[in-house]
Write a protein that binds this DNA or RNA. Structure first.
Lengths: 209, 209
DNA sequence: TTTTGGTTTAACCATTTGGTCAAAAATAGA
DNA sequence: TCTATTTTTGACCAAATGGTTAAACCAAAA
């Protein structure tokens, strides 16, 4: 759908998405969203009532993208290593397409952890009770089979998430220190990580026979 | 030095430190800093001229804490594995004592990458030209000696930094999903990571003979 | 005690900001 | 075409915000 064909409501949401994710809730001015959408500021309130309501729409979309959608990947037919490989490749790919979402979501959650955690608890619940349980069981099975070393499944999951997400959160500092501000080299570095991280993790937990 | 014995200038800096790091530049009100320091708002301008100047003082202190001080650790007498072990233990310890610094520094850098990167380029330069060179050479030597597997030193460094820093940036979401909002369990999880991350990294790169 | 210097305060200011409202414009239905 | 409904606009508002200033305060020197 072309930007021109979209109705005002969608134009606003797109603009709000861009500005909020770039500048955060506190750093965003309603006027700036209106300018970005090329519409009158009053329309923001006409369609979304308040800044906070509009923010919630944006945050909701963002956190749904950010939370890994593992339903398709977590498949009992695949080995643990296959699952890890596919997950890392797909999740880094998702972040390549949405590089600012991690900082946006994590920063807003950090500023208002209680309120936002409660509002979106249903999303976390689904992960906690389904996806995490599946993965933890799989890890424990592989440990029992002697395929991987003893490791706390939670630590393993956080390790994998850290390795995928952190470079996007730290992009400016990494680009300065490692790549002399070259965003091209940084992008290549990220692209390489799809394989690097996968190898790094599997190499660490695999039992060599 | 007791808080009561400090002079106004220090009281302000302490208060600014707390509020800025908690709420970020945009989320911070000058009045809130004054309240925190229990002094009149005009004194903020009397001692620090403007919000931006005060912010710079706070950010400068924060980024200096955040950038790993490896001078003492990077010692040619130690093995690479020793260096990695000590670094991870000490750096996670530093973050335990300053848990909000990573999000603060990375978020502000993300919002104004050009301005802040330029202002603090001297700090980055020192790391780039000394500490990183030392570590990269050490990694290449160990690869040549067959002690560790082939790996891009930059990827290894980013892996280590990711594993140390990310849990602090993602604290609220991790605490919700993994530990049912129990900050006690989260703290134990972090404490355990001092050894977990170290093992995870070394296990991944060590050549088994 | 008086003077002098830095320090602290309250009142004040200009601008910004989220938000409202009534009227105008556009659209759809009869 | 005329009417009813929805959409859009610009003027406006109250509160908040960073910042200024003149006067008050206070401790130390003369």
């Amino acid at each position: 759908m072309n930007q021109k064909d979209k109705n005002t409501e969608e134009l606003i949401l797109d603009a709000a998405n861009k500005v909020f994710i770039e500048k955060g809730l506190d750093g965003t001015r309603m006027q700036e969203i209106a300018d970005e959408a090329k519409i009158n500021k009053s329309l923001l309130h006409y369609y979304y009532r308040s800044k906070d309501k509009l923010f919630c729409e944006v945050f909701n979309k963002a956190i749904q993208k950010f939370l890994p959608n593992t339903v398709k990947i977590f498949d009992s037919q695949k080995t643990l290593f296959e699952i890890i490989e596919i997950f890392i490749e797909e999740y880094i790919g998702l972040l390549q397409r949405n590089p600012f979402i991690p900082m946006f979501v994590l920063h807003e959650l950090g500023k208002r952890p209680k309120k936002l955690s409660e509002t979106f608890s249903h999303l976390f619940g689904e992960i906690k009770n389904n996806q995490l349980v599946f993965f933890r069981n799989m890890v424990r099975q592989e440990i029992a089979k002697g395929e991987i070393i003893e490791i706390d499944p939670n630590q393993l999951i956080v390790n994998i998430m850290s390795l995928c997400i952190f470079p996007f959160v730290a992009k400016p500092i990494l680009q300065t220190i490692f790549f002399d501000e070259s965003s091209k080299e940084f992008k290549k570095f990220i692209q390489d990580r799809k394989k690097e991280v996968s190898d790094f993790v599997i190499n660490s937990i695999k039992v060599k026979k």
